[in-house]
Amino acid sequence: MRVDILDIGSGNIKSIQNLIHRLHVPTNIVTDAKKISSDFLILPGVGSAGSYMERMRKGDFDKAVLEHVDNGKQILGICLGFQIMGNFSEEDGGVETLGILNGKVEKLAQHNGWEKLQFRSDELGENRFESKLKLTKKRNVDGRVFYNHEYGFVLDDKSAFNKYISTSYEKYSSMVIRKNIIGMQFHPEKSQKSGLELISMIL
């Protein structure tokens, strides 16, 4: 399996590519919406919601991403890539986003730093999915992950697996999994050992 990484001109694509390559999985940087063809797509994570969505719509990436999800293929949104999976973001004066997940994005006090993450794959319940590449037999991550954001995702979907950031940010999602859709507010590509373990469990 190859991993497609969407590149619509926002920063930090290379870090995500480096992370996937560390797991010896090939990647494809997608700059044309028609060329999304892998079973696993990553929406990377930096920029501002308004300009990100503008570029998504301009290049028809929004339609291509929705089609990818409707076909049951996996998608991983990271930081802003996760936030634009919701219905609406308060950023840039208010932006309608993809609506892949039920939820909205709200302004919060800035949050830059590391938080603990404990995750076991058997917590997923009906949202459990099979890792395609089976890169590891690990079933849990007990470590720390890195956040750098000013907006937070408030999920409105009881059927999805939802992990909160921390007790100080318990309103906001750290990681959401709903079947083939995965969102992470933190940056796995910058979370050292824990990020690598988590992505190896997912792929």
Binding site: V46, G47, N148, E150
Partner: peptide
């Protein structure tokens, strides 16, 4: 830079 990387960056 804010447009490309976001204000948080």
């Amino acid at each position: 830079a804010q447009k490309l990387f976001g204000h948080q960056s």
